[in-house]
Amino acid sequence: MDVLPILIDWLPYLLSGVASTLGLVLAALGLGVLFGLPMALGQVYGARPIRWAVGIYVWFFRGLPILVLLFLFWFGIFPAIGLGHLSAFVVGAVVLGLRGAAYQSQIFRGAVQSVGEGQMIAARSLGMSRLTAIRSVILPQAMRIALPGWSNEYPNILTDSAVCYAIGVVELLTITSRMVTQTHITMPVYLATAGIFIVLNYGGLKLLHRLEARIAIPGFGTGAM
């Protein structure tokens, strides 16, 4: 079977697909934290209108399939507001990021709420303003608590990134598709891609677990007061 030489020929393209995919994932994770964290803080400490607004945002972005979100933004919303020139990659990254923010905001919210009430009380009793207390006492603890749950976002975003195929983003699945149509080799190629995804998935998780271990604090995360 002369599959191997062909696979090797295509290796650079596959790798560029991997790079694209990872780019999408990193953008989604980054945007997820960037928007998700303030939203979580808004839900825990903010006034009613803010909690409401965040609630609606989360409901919307979690209730729609990723495919529909991609179609909606790529074909509909972005062109309608004058951003029709954006590349599919950018749109894909933004949509994945906005959706990621919705999911991640709930992870962060749970973490912030699980930081013991006493921490805020002690901080305030020392004269810290609410903002200082959140920044210096609550968040450092909440982020550590959130890390395991947040790590679980990685596989989800990775598998969702493949759906960006539907709007023409040139990521790993797209390259795989092209490879199949052009080389007429189907199963080996698909299985190889599945293998790549699996490696990316579990490899990434391993790295995240290492990170968790690195920043762990003795006795922390086991019922903080």
């Binding site: 006493g118 921490q119 009380i121 002690a122 901080a123 604090i217 922390f220």
Partner: peptide, 15 residues
Amino acid sequence: QKIGMVFQNFFLFDH
């Protein structure tokens, strides 16, 4: 700042 407080459950900053 000028009124110190010590709590029954200490409330030390765990991190």
